[in-house]
Design a protein around this nucleic acid. Structure first.
Lengths: 215, 215
DNA sequence: CGGGGTCTTGACCGTCATCAAGTTGTGTGG
DNA sequence: CCACACAACTTGATGACGGTCAAGACCCCG
C-alpha cells in the first residue's frame, strides 16, 4: 500500500467519462470564476501558463499522457492559469463533484489519484537548481520518463518549442539553443528536428546534479 | 462546494490523533524507505530541504501552522527531503492508512484535505519570477498571509534566517540582506530583529509583480 | 564578558539576458 | 509541387544582475 504498484501509470483513466478533443494551440476553455472539472490527458501535451505584468508568458507546468489537470484549482476556486494544447490533444473530462463521489466509492481509485497528484507535485523539483545547464539536463531526464513512462526511452520527440522550454526553466530561448549546441558538441545527446536522442545518460544525470566537468 | 468556505483554514485538525513535539533545529525523524504518516502543524514552523551534490542546502518548502506535511511522499513511497523545525514545534501525526480511512468516512474532510493540499501547491508560485526583488517581495506577502491566515497581518516575526530565505528563493544570503536594506531605504517596510512591518503593501505587491520603479 | 553565529556592506567577476543579424524550418496558397 | 512569408532556431557581442569572497558589525546565549 505504501509503495505504489509498479505499473500504476498504466491504470485505466477512463472513469473520466467525457472526451474533449483539442487542436494544437487551442486553449482549453476553463471557467474563469468557478472550478468545475478535473481533466486527464488521454493523448497529446499541454502547457499551463500565466502572462506577467511585463507581458511575458511564464509556463507553470506541462501535462502529458496519463497526467491529471485541475487539482491546482481546488483551493482558489478557479484555474490560476491558461491551459493550451501543444499538439493535437485528447482530454478526459469529469465534473469535480462526480470525481469526489467516484473516489469515495472506490478507495483504490482514491489512492491512485492521490498518487498521481503527489507524483506531479514532484515535477520541476530541479527548477531551483542554480545553473542553466543543470535545469535543462534535469528537464530532459524528466521529459524522457514522462513521455515514455514505461520504457524510459532515451530517444523522444520534443512536443514543445525552445521558447516554451525557456519560459518553463526561466531561461532565454537563446540560452536553450546554446546549451543544446554544447550538449551536442560534447556528445551527450543528438538533437535535430526536435528529436532528442540521449547518448550518455549518466553524464546527463551528472550535469543535472551539478557535477559539470565539461568544457 | 466549488468555492471553499471562508474560514476553512480554521477547521479543526485534531482528527490527527497523535501529538509530536519538536525542539528548534530538531529533525523530524522520517522513515527513509517507507512512507507512513501524514502530519499537520499545530504550532511552530518547519523547513523541508535537500543537500545538493555541491553540499549546499536547498529548501523546498516551509510548513506553518495549519498546514499539512506528507502528501509529497505518496508517489515516491518515501520523503524526498529532510524536515527540520525552525522553532519549537508541535505536530499532529496520523498514519496514512488511518488517514485514508478517515477521509473516506467523512466526505467533508476529504474535500477539506484536498483543499489544503491544493492550496499548498500554490505556494512558491513566485519562485519562477526573474528578479531577486520580485521573489523576495512575493515571499514576504505570502508569509504574511500564511503566518496569520485570518488577519492578513502587516507585521510579523520571521521564523527563519536570511540564509534560509536565500536557500528557498535561490538567492545568496547577502542578496537578501541587501534587498532588505533597499526596501527599508524606500520605506516599503521596516525590519529589525527579525520583525517585519509592511508599510506600503501596495508598493510591495507592485514589486512582486515586477513593476519595479524604485531606485 | 567573551565567542559563535547572523547580518551588513563593499569589490569583483561569472552567468545568463538582451539585442541583433543571419539561417533554417514550417505552413499556406498559388 | 513550388514559392513565399513568417516562425523558430543559431550565433555573436555586450552588459546587468546577482554570486562569491572578504572584513567588520551586531546580536544573542551561555
Amino acid at each position: 500500500m505504501n509503495k505504489p504498484k509498479a505499473n500504476l501509470e498504466t491504470l485505466d483513466l477512463s472513469f473520466f467519462n467525457h472526451l474533449l478533443p483539442l487542436k494544437r494551440r487551442e486553449v482549453l476553455a476553463l471557467p474563469k470564476n468557478k472550478f468545475q472539472h478535473f481533466y486527464a490527458v488521454k493523448q497529446g501535451a499541454l502547457k499551463a501558463y500565466q502572462i506577467e505584468a511585463n507581458g511575458k508568458e511564464v509556463i507553470r507546468s506541462f501535462y502529458f499522457r496519463g497526467e491529471i489537470l485541475g487539482y491546482e484549482a481546488i483551493a482558489k476556486g478557479y484555474y490560476p492559469f491558461t491551459v493550451c494544447a501543444l499538439t493535437d490533444t485528447l482530454l478526459y473530462e469529469i465534473p469535480y463533484e462526480h470525481f469526489l463521489k467516484l473516489i469515495h466509492e472506490q478507495p483504490a481509485l482514491q489512492h491512485h489519484c492521490l498518487y498521481l497528484i503527489s507524483k506531479q507535485l514532484n515535477h520541476g523539483s530541479y527548477l531551483s537548481a542554480s545553473t542553466a545547464e543543470q535545469r535543462l539536463a534535469a528537464f530532459l531526464i524528466e521529459l524522457a520518463s514522462r513521455l515514455h513512462p514505461l520504457e524510459r526511452a532515451l530517444a523522444f520527440s520534443l512536443p514543445l518549442s525552445q521558447q516554451d522550454m525557456g519560459s518553463y526553466l526561466r531561461l532565454a530561448a537563446e540560452t536553450i539553443s546554446r546549451l543544446f549546441s554544447k550538449l551536442q558538441k560534447n556528445k551527450i545527446l543528438t538533437f535535430a528536428q526536435k528529436k532528442v536522442c540521449i547518448l550518455e545518460s549518466e553524464k546527463l544525470q551528472a550535469l543535472a546534479e551539478g557535477l559539470s566537468i565539461l568544457c
